[in-house]
Amino acid sequence: MFLFITRRLFFALLLLFAVSVVTYLLFSALPVDPAALTCGKNCKPELIAANRVRLGYDKPLVEQYWLFLKGIFVGRDYGMGQAAFSCPAPSLGYSFSQHECVTTLIGKTFPVTAFLSIGAFILWMFIGVGSGAIAALNKGKWQDRLANAFTAIGVSLPTFYVGLLVLFSVVIWLGILPFPHYESPLEDPVKFLNAMILPWITLAVLSAASYTRLTRNGMLEAMNEDFVRLGVAKGLTRRVVLRKYVMRSAMVPIVTIAGLDFAALLGGAIITESVFSLPGMGKLSIRAVVESDLPVLVGTTMVAAVFIVLANVIVDISYGFLDPRVREK
C-alpha cells in the first residue's frame, strides 16, 4: 500500500510537470505581446521594451519557463533598483493587467470558489443520493418517475440557463432575495449566505441529477446481486440489508465520481461565478482571458490541474479502502 501511494504521488508530480510545460508553451504561443499589455494604448516603445526586460519576456522561451518553475519554489524578483518588487514563493508569476502577484490574486479568489464548491457539494450529495435512493426503493412508482424526470431535465439544462432563470425568478421577479453581493463570511455572514444560496442551489440541482441516476441504478443493480439475496436469506432486517449490502456497494462508484467532480469545481466554477458575479477563481480566469493576462491564466490552470490530479490520487487510494478487492492489487 505504501509503495502504491508513493508511486501514485510520484507519477502525479510527473504529470503536473507535464501539464505546466504544455500550459506554459500553449499560452506563450498566443499571438499577444505580454509586455505591450502592461501599459495602456498610448505606450511608448521604450517603456514596452523596459517592461519586457523587467518581466523577463526578453529571454528565450526555455529560460522563461525555467524562471517560472523556479519561482514556484523560491519566489521571484522582478526589475531592479527602485522599481524592483518581488513575488514570494510559491510565485506563479505577475499579472501585468492587475499589477499583482498571481499567487496573491488566487489567494484572494480561492476562498470564494471553495465556499461555493463545498456548499454545493454537500447539497448535491444529499439531493442526489437521497432522491436516487427513494427512486430505487420505489422502482416504477411515481417517486421513481419523478426522479427520472428530474434527472433528464437536470442533465440536459445548461448551467448558465438555470443560473439566470434562478436569478431572474427569485431576485428580480419575486424579489425574495436581494441581488447577490459577495461578502466574506467572517465579515458579514448574512450577506455571505444571501450571495451564496442561489449559486449553491443552481450548482447542486444540476450536479445532483447525475447522482440521482447513479445512486438509483447502483442500488437496483446491487439489489439483484446474489449476496443481497443471501443477506435476506440470513434473516437480516430490511434496514440492515439496505445499509450493509445495497448502499455499501452502490456507494463505491459514487464516491469516486464525487471526488473528481468536487476537484473540478475547486478549479473554478466559471459559469456559475460569472452569472452570480462571485469574485472566485472562475471569474479571475474569465477576466484573464478577456485581458490576455497570460500569467494569471497559467496560474489558474495550474491550480485547477493540481486539484484534479490530487483528487485522482485520493480517489484511487480511497478506492482501496472502500473495496477490499482493489486493495490487493
Binding site: D226, F227, L230, A233, K234, G235, K244, R248, S249
Partner: peptide, 19 residues
C-alpha cells in the same frame, strides 16, 4: 429465515458480500 431454513446459492463468487 436463516434459523429454520437456510440457502446455498449457485455462484459462490457472487453470493458473498465483497465488502
Amino acid at each position: 429465515r436463516g434459523s429454520e431454513i437456510a440457502m446455498v446459492f449457485q455462484d459462490p463468487m457472487s453470493a458473498l458480500n465483497p465488502y
